[in-house]
Write a protein that binds this DNA or RNA. Structure first.
Lengths: 351, 351
DNA sequence: CTGAAAGCGCTTACAG
DNA sequence: CTGAAAGCGCTTACAG
């Protein structure tokens, strides 16, 4: 930069002003500087800039794994959204491991970025204190509520209730629920979605049958296939499956096909997450869309606002969710069956 | 760091040595420093460090989109591999757009990282000059050969030949090839895989029938479904489909099912990439595994070696590929049908 | 509108 | 094995 200044016959301050697009520069000066810039092939040393301005323009997105389509699509959306604001995203894969999630909050890489968006899986309600950090942090998902951080989540109970109600309206009465984890806290996705399932049964006057609860963990396709397969082999009558995510649903579909069960004629199937895949399964899968783009947009917006110095109380933003009907519930064309509105509440509001 | 030094009663040099794990420090000194470090809650300013050592420990991985499972899985593998060497990965999504790929090589973000792994899609053979850059660069894939950069690719011709031969050995004779792009250069994935397909037909003495070439672009599920659907509706007899990637294959499977065509009884199907999904399709999909982990490992190793100052001639590393048989070709259990060995040649060797 | 100069927080020859 | 000091390349009060 000093070389450029010398060549252009100005001070480094002026060069800096030009490089950073500072407005009040005499056109002639600007021109001289720009010529020198290109002649010398100047390239900003960003580390020096970061050192000086005490900010890197990088943010961390920590998710369990990119190989899981839901997180790959979320990462895609967050990267795009950050891009539009001049922010660059560093992705950390935690594998859902508690120690790696903690490392995201305090490890050596922490210092690389200005803030963190974390989708915890290993950390739970008991680890709330770990989220009291001195940098902007946005939590995603349903593992932790009420922490001292901004939080973006979806309306799990309402969405699960809507999906289950939809199956009930189709006349299904023996609805298996695939995915609960007996060890999971009540506030995890599994607990909330199970609540929604039960609420829907209650409203319809259909008794809850524990025999229709099919645990499956982790929420991967293989677990969905294995768990539902074993359940089907057990002979419990069933006419619908509500899977707690799409990976489980795709695994379930595989298990159903393998046993010659027709979907949706014999068993209707609804998943959760609305990942791209479900539109190419045979039959195409009905699913709950959690509002992925809205989640990405909100998470980045919250981080930016904190980065800009917003010191207001932590908030919990709930995204708008939809139930999307496709062939696996007998819908020939894709259609939105119901919309669960989003909202915003204080982060420490009751769930 | 100066504060820590003062508190520990040593110089900043000693603090730096302790923080960076420099070996020859008296244990008592080390202890004193470590105490001061924790008492003061010291956290390294990484920008200052980067400025000083002229390196960030970050590398760029530029792929079309994370929503495409192949690239999500590749990113996963590259992140893991980089991790084991203390490198952090910054992912750029280019959308396969030429301008964005060029921006990866010369845009403002370029200065953030020490080197780049780029999987080009918009840039082609004609843009070879764009790869003459003054930082370590590793190219992935089949869009560009012979550029002045290290290159990791797979044995496309051999792998496509093996996949086609496998279908021929199953007795299939009317093998449609899904994915060629008439506009694509001969050295792109499509051209090379088509070459392999034709070579296999030739060896088997089966005449090449242009009516069995089914163009499809981009290589997404929807294009696979639409293109193969239209082809099937045209009534050309067919008993197998070789799809140029798994997304096309999954789309093809959808189109086949939609028309009541049994896979594999009526039509056998082989995809390419061996993404996770294919093991959960119904039927499970046979596919060509390009050696994803080896590609990730090699790409990172090449970058590290250049970063360490290796000035040797550019190389082209060809990964080991396998044909994996599953239900879509009548294989009840997953099995490796053939292995195409990898190799290493100068980057400017003929393809 | 522009200049001269200090300082961000590290690392590393150079001495000892 | 450790210290004192220079310098990496920027930005920004402070003057003018």
């Amino acid at each position: 930069m000093a070389d450029v200044a010398r060549r252009a016959g100005v001070s480094v301050k002026t060069v800096s002003n030009v490089v950073n697009g500072y407005p009040h520069i005499r056109p002639a000066t600007k021109e001289k500087v720009e010529t020198a810039l290109t002649e010398l092939g100047y390239r900003m040393n960003v580390s020096a800039r970061h050192l000086r301005i005490r900010r890197t323009g990088l943010i961390t997105l920590a998710v369990p794994e990119l190989s899981l389509p839901y997180f790959a699509e979320l990462a895609d959306a967050v990267i795009r959204e950050a891009d539009t604001h001049g922010l660059t995203v560093l992705i950390e894969q935690t594998g859902g491991r508690r120690d790696r999630e903690l490392a995201v909050l305090s490890g050596s890489r922490r210092q690389l970025t200005d803030g963190v968006i974390l989708s915890p899986l290993g950390l739970g309600q008991a680890d709330r204190a770990a989220f009291e950090v001195d940098f902007p942090l946005v939590l995603l998902g349903e593992r932790v509520f009420g922490a001292a951080a901004d939080h973006v989540t979806m309306n799990n109970v309402a969405a699960a209730r809507a999906a289950t109600s939809y199956l009930l309206e189709l006349g299904r009465r023996r609805i298996a629920v695939l995915g609960p984890d007996p060890a999971d806290a009540a506030t995890g996705s599994a607990g909330l979605r199970l609540d929604g399932y039960r609420e829907a049964l209650d409203s319809a006057g259909v008794p809850f049958d524990p025999a229709l609860v099919v645990p499956a963990t982790p929420w991967h396709r293989s677990a969905g296939s294995d768990s539902l397969g074993a359940f089907l082999d057990g002979g419990t009558p069933v006419d619908a499956v509500f899977a707690m995510n799409d990976a489980l649903a795709l695994g379930a579909l595989y298990a159903l096909h393998a046993r010659g069960v027709d979907v949706p004629a014999d068993v209707a199937l609804v998943g959760f997450d609305d990942v791209d895949d479900v539109r190419y399964a045979t039959p195409t899968l009905s699913s709950v869309a959690p509002g992925r783009d809205e989640i990405a947009r909100t998470a980045v917006a919250l981080l930016r606002s904190r980065l800009a110095g917003d010191g207001g109380p932590y908030v919990r933003v709930i995204s708008e969710a939809r139930v999307v009907a496709r062939q696996s519930t007998g819908s020939a064309v894709e259609q939105v069956i119901s919309v669960q509105p989003g909202s915003q509440v204080p982060a420490d509001a009751p769930v």
